[in-house]
Write a protein that binds this DNA or RNA. Sequence first.
DNA 1: AAAACAAGCTAACGTTCGCTAGCTTTCAAT
DNA 2: ATTGAAAGCTAGCGAACGTTAGCTTGTTTT
Lengths: 214, 214
Amino acid sequence: MFSAPASHRRLAAVGTDLPPGTAPDGSRGQILSESLRLFAEQGYGAASIRDIASRVGIKGASLYSHYPSKAHVLAELVRIGHEEHFRRMRDALLAAQPDVHVQLAAVVRAHVCAHAEYPMLAVVSNSELHALPEEFAAPLLAIRRQSEMLMLDVIQRGVNLGVFKVPDIQLAMTAIGAMGLRVAHWYTPDSGKTPEQIADTYALFAARLLGVTA
Amino acid sequence: MFSAPASHRRLAAVGTDLPPGTAPDGSRGQILSESLRLFAEQGYGAASIRDIASRVGIKGASLYSHYPSKAHVLAELVRIGHEEHFRRMRDALLAAQPDVHVQLAAVVRAHVCAHAEYPMLAVVSNSELHALPEEFAAPLLAIRRQSEMLMLDVIQRGVNLGVFKVPDIQLAMTAIGAMGLRVAHWYTPDSGKTPEQIADTYALFAARLLGVTA
DNA sequence: AAAACAAGCTAACGTTCGCTAGCTTTCAAT
DNA sequence: ATTGAAAGCTAGCGAACGTTAGCTTGTTTT
């Protein structure tokens, strides 16, 4: 029961940014953007088609010219969120070969930055996936497992090399992952900290957590 | 997007335990218990009065003999969750005077154990509070702030004493808090790890994160 | 025995939900 | 000028929602 926004809101952020190039033009994009805000603030179940449409400036029925169902809108948002997260982690890792300390910092930084730069997308991707029927969720869970594997592999390699020392690799990964996840709930640009500054501090925390003493 | 249950469920646990002495006898207690399961698995908005009642073995209307509204049921669950969490943290801290390393371990252990032993209660307390109207949420947020303060004070004291070294105290607290929060989502007794074992490992992680090298 | 109460029931209210059918408007391409 | 697709609209369906009213039944208290 920690690190939530001061009010009873689900997250502190107010921007509905989507990664560049992921939102279609016109009404389709506006529907995605306004759905993102409402799903993040109220949850998928509590956000109605009519709510979304009225923010876009159209009627509820007109939304079905653009998406076949409410679930398709959520699935699209979660897909964008998971793909962006995975892409950032993978790219950061590829650019950080071959030192395992540098790799760890890169992957933690990418993880944290993704959650700080797109907090609404992260909250929806993480907290609303359960609302999707299984056939929608399955390919998204596959992406999630790939992202986990990226971090787990770095930790495993560090342990094999003897530079990381932990009682349990899985517990270390869930701990580091959780730190970054939670950023999406409390981060706001008003805090005076940039995502990069937070990411740097969390990368330090991750290294220390893994037994790196420097 | 880490450390979730393998499926698209919101949490891995299946037990609906409430802390001893917190659930009333009879139907009132059953309503609390079944509401806890449904709120945790599906979210407050997606769980209907009729769902809850049918699991208790009564009709939806009969539920109103015991609670004045659906929101009152949620508020009661969140109150129980927050009070149990705070009580454990405070008691652990009081029993751990005066060494700051011992205090840190105690407070982190209490935090983690509360989330592992009552995962459904923790998920509901943390993820569904936003569904309550503000007048219900305000006193619960006050408890939450007290719990945060307990951990923050320990960290602050350690930093003042020079035994903890971090770039940012607030970031350290959110990181440590987040690690424990997330346990509620993936923990299940089947894993072969006890809450105490996980808590011990996380206490080690927290100490390392704060720059303790031992 | 009578009265009061507790705890359940059926029926229904008004609202909102996701979604569909079918119509109008706009506007670019033929 | 005509056509045809795109994108909006109104109206409404059936279902589910939280909640209320009023009744029955069984137990406890007076």
